[in-house]
Design a binder for these strands. Structure first.
Lengths: 196, 196
DNA sequence: CTTCGTAGTGAACGAACGTTCATTTATCAC
DNA sequence: GTGATAAATGAACGTTCGTTCACTACGAAG
């Protein structure tokens, strides 16, 4: 192991802990309602330690956002490695998206909960990160064969809205259907409809 | 006109202005990021004037929420007076819901933007109000004839999620489809699917 | 052993927060 | 007019906010 890495192991550990706790707090309470002191208390350090690793609350949010889009993006990409047809791929992406949102870790939830407009200064960074992730769904939907008159953009916005809204009502493992079943219902409804 | 009403005309006017401005601020910036001073400044009064009409920020939010669910509920009820078939009624409700969300007034937007969990103390009041409104969609979906295996609860959550998410991307009168077209696409997709 | 760089501390800064209150202003009843 | 009632003011309260900084602790380099 390189000596420089050994030296900075503790630093990295604390930095990762701050990111994880911040993600959890921002996802649960929102950006404005979460204070730097809340995060420091949960991590088990003082407020000054936060500012050793991040220059401001804004930038901490951006760092959390970056990790969030990377994690949920990786999860979706992994789910897309199973080679299935285009509708199956969309369903697999929806399932991975739902599973990431319902995980205990807050990284993915932050992306849904915190709106870019919540921050003001770094809103553009957040929008760019979010769009970079959602681009995957644009590609997936472009690959579908649709009936004439169907709007692909509206279809993507509809599916993402439905998936993200699940954060409001979805409780992991509490009776109701799991992520795979929900993804199957949602994509199935969009594909063939639910009318008798 | 009764004398008591005449006496209190100005009071009511200020109270209504506070409610409207608070709705706008809460909908645009969220609950935590909006301060009493922000609202007072936009109304054109001092902070003390807010507390003449509302005992706390929590209760002001509840009052805004109540007016919000009443307005969007009335809009949906009005749209349902046109007697059409059950799918047409669902589409009419979706259209009215979208139109209310895209209006300049913030009353309807608050219901989507502010989560009951944002407040802590009066969260139960907010949940009750929101559910009272969304009950309409439960009834509408119960009236549909669905294919076997379709989950009505998931269908409602899917549609409401897609509709509410429109607040993120819908810009009134800026090129993209209007509320009626979006409602037609959304409900049409759920009914018959979009696959070729 | 000494030196150096940095993670982390703890106290403090000014500003903004929700809320209160004595006081002033305006309106209606008599 | 006079008194009563309530809207509205403006200043203040204690607290919490994001941020800063002089300082300590400690592992790596020479």
């Amino acid at each position: 192991m390189p000596k420089a890495a050994l030296r900075h192991r503790k630093e990295d550990h604390t930095r990762q802990r701050i990111l994880a706790v911040a993600a959890h707090c921002f996802a649960d309470g929102g950006y404005a309602a979460t204070s730097i002191r809340d995060i420091a208390r949960d991590v088990g350090v003082t407020v000054g330690a936060i500012y050793v690793h991040f220059p401001s609350k804004d930038r901490l949010l951006v760092a959390v956002y970056e990790m969030g889009v990377r994690r949920i993006g990786d999860a979706v990409d992994a789910a897309l490695r199973e080679p299935v047809d285009s509708w199956g791929r969309l369903e697999a992406a929806a399932r991975a998206h739902l599973e990431a949102l319902s995980s205990n870790c807050g990284f993915a939830r932050v992306i849904v909960r915190v709106t870019p407009s919540d921050v003001g200064d770094v809103a553009a960074d957040l929008s760019r990160l979010r769009e970079g992730y959602e681009e995957r769904f644009r590609t997936l939907i472009d690959a579908l064969r649709l009936a004439p008159g169907a709007d692909r953009t509206l279809l993507r916005l509809m599916l993402l809205g439905a998936l993200n809204h699940s954060q409001t009502w979805f409780k992991r493992g509490t009776g109701r259907a799991d992520a795979a079943a929900i993804a199957r219902q949602f994509v199935g409804a969009l594909r063939q409809g639910v009318a008798a």
